[in-house]
Design a protein around this nucleic acid. Structure first.
Length: 430
DNA sequence: TCTGGGGTCCTAGGACCC
DNA sequence: TCTGGGGTCCTAGGACCC
């Protein structure tokens, strides 16, 4: 409540209904219209406008269950357009980086900024952030300000739910009693880091609100649950103890490419093509971030909604760390194809590259060094696809001219208005 | 008929070694 | 042949997030 002294705070900036908001930037006629954005394959609802929420459209509902009803009630849908959202996201992050030297990109539409100032100065900064993002990008954002990231999330949600706050929620503007009252109204399952499973077990202990969770014994809860639950509790008390992985510095971990098909795949030939293309996509991401991979994991499966569910998965190591798409594709298809059962209706497959490391991190034994002619091919494929469109060139079975019939369905896709010349938005003055 | 696609972190348990 | 404890490393799987 002391508005005079300088404090260090986290500010969470979060785009309101991000995918919906991005669609509306280039289609202003959709403002005020109940709108949803669908997952890949037009499978289910992944984003809803305020109007759609008010109509009672649930998150995650399958589109085929909703389509007819939507037509009758004026609910509009769009296929997800990740190219557009990705481009809007990088513009957003560029603007945010002007407000703090320490910004952590948490997802496409969220970032944590570390700020310093008096509580009222920080609120003024948050208002300026909202104004800038609205002016420069046309996107609405909410901001939560608090001593820990978890509380910043909580107060950001509060800012979205209470129009009176005009998009900014600040922990420091409330007395301790008021904070207790706020946390008492928030279900424990809505606390960042508490998922469905843990929430169910907390319920069994009589812990149902964020307030009860905050006031439970962190050490005891650690032994009962895990260090993640302990951290959630300490964060609710205002102690900063969650860290966000630095994706740029780490460059480790894994890349994955997986998709559902629009029509089932039943033959080895088709699966060969699928896995070839997916492995190539994963290899492209690998090179884009300048990494090599030492191992892989791949799977193909039937629908999880139809009994009996069947999945085959394989994993393995490469002889030496590599970024070469030829050997990646070869080895993964050679491992997976013999294990698949022709005739089964496969609806989904994926390829994951593991044990990533920065390219050139270690000298390879000459014995295992790849043929230098091979290392050139990957870059070449990337270049041609960049200039001539994705899929212009491919390796082996992935290099087919005809679009395969299992490929993704996106029937109601908006323009890629920020990344493709042919799809730019046009503006006319009257 | 038709139900997303990425990721990260933590823990338990087995293999292996001294 | 049996008996022990303690450490590390790896992997699989669970839980969570957007």
């Amino acid at each position: 409540m002391n508005n005079a002294s300088t404090v260090r705070r986290f500010a969470l900036v979060d785009v309101d209904s991000c995918f919906v908001a991005c669609e509306r930037v280039f289609h202003p006629e959709l403002a005020g219209v109940p709108l949803v954005v669908l997952s890949n394959n037009d499978g289910c609802v992944v984003a809803r406008s305020r109007e759609a929420k008010n109509m009672g459209v649930p998150m995650g509902i399958a589109w085929f269950k909703l389509r007819e009803w939507a037509g009758r009630h004026g609910l509009v849908a769009r296929s997800s357009n990740y190219e557009l959202y990705g481009s809007m996201s990088s513009r957003l992050m560029t603007v945010l980086s002007e407000f703090s030297a320490t910004t952590e990109v948490y997802s496409l539409d969220e970032a944590f900024l570390q700020l310093r100032g008096t509580p009222s100065e920080l609120v003024a900064t948050a208002r300026e952030i909202r104004r800038r993002i609205a002016h420069d990008l046309g996107l609405p954002v909410s901001v939560g300000i608090a001593p820990s990231r978890t509380l910043a999330k909580t107060f950001c949600h509060g800012a979205k739910d209470h129009p009176r706050l005009a998009g900014v929620g600040s922990y420091d503007q409330y007395s301790p009693e008021a904070i207790d009252a706020i946390l008492d109204k928030i279900p424990a399952r809505d606390v960042w880091g508490i998922g469905r499973r843990i929430a169910g077990r907390l319920d069994g202990l009589g812990i149902t609100t964020a307030l009860q969770l905050r006031d439970s014994d962190p050490r005891h809860m650690r032994t009962r649950f895990s260090v993640a639950t302990e951290r959630a509790i300490r964060e609710l008390r205002g102690t900063d103890c969650v860290t966000i992985a630095d994706r740029d510095a780490a460059r480790t971990g894994q890349v994955m490419f997986s998709r559902s098909f629009s029509t089932p795949v039943t033959t080895r030939d088709q699966m060969h093509q699928v896995i070839g293309i997916y492995a190539q996509q994963a290899a492209t991401r690998l090179r884009q971030q300048g990494s090599t991979t030492a191992g892989f994991w791949a799977f193909a499966s039937t629908s999880a909604f139809v009994e009996p569910f069947h999945q085959v998965s394989i994993s393995g190591h490469f002889e030496a760390p590599t970024a070469d798409p030829v050997s990646i594709v070869k080895q993964i298809t050679a491992a997976l194809l013999p294990r698949m059962t022709p005739g089964l209706k496969h609806v989904r497959a994926g390829v994951s590259l593991l044990d990533l490391a920065p390219a050139g991190a270690q000298e390879m034994l000459e014995l295992f060094a790849p043929d230098p002619r091979l290392t050139v091919i990957g870059g070449l494929v990337d270049k041609v696809n960049k200039n001539c469109g994705r899929g212009a060139v491919g390796i082996g079975h992935a290099g087919l001219a005809q679009p395969p019939d299992w490929q993704m369905k996106r029937d109601i896709l908006s323009e890629r208005a920020t990344t493709h010349w042919a799809e730019l938005a046009s503006v006319s003055a009257r």
